[in-house]
């Protein structure tokens, strides 16, 4: 039976194969995924990797870059999108 503090679902469970050959259960801290570009899937810079409850307390300028499509597209994709729009 795991320790009572590990019996909560606030920690994620990871099965690890230990050197002795048996499989043991490790408890790891949960962490959100990095924000991804909507077009190419590259990880976005300037977007913090934080849970929504922490993001809520942050300033708007700290949550995404201050440019059009900031926090949605990466800078390269945003640039290409604007160029495509102007050349139409």
């Amino acid at each position: 039976m795991p320790a009572p503090r590990l019996r909560s679902r606030s920690l994620r469970k990871v099965f690890r194969k230990v050197p002795g050959g048996r499989v043991s259960l490790h408890h790891k801290k949960k962490r959100p995924k990095t924000a991804k570009c909507g077009n190419c899937g590259a990880s976005l810079k300037g977007v913090p990797r934080a849970f929504p409850f922490r993001m809520r307390s942050m300033a708007k300028t700290k949550k995404r870059p201050e440019r059009p499509y900031g926090g949605v597209l990466c800078s390269r994709c945003m640039r290409q999108a604007i160029i495509d729009k102007t050349r139409q």
């Binding site: 201050e66 440019r67 059009p68 800078s75 945003m78 640039r79 604007i82 160029i83 102007t86």
Partner: peptide, 11 residues
């Protein structure tokens, strides 16, 4: 011109 980089992008 149209600026394509930074906070003035698209202007």
């Amino acid at each position: 011109c149209v600026k394509i980089a930074g906070r003035d992008a698209g202007k």
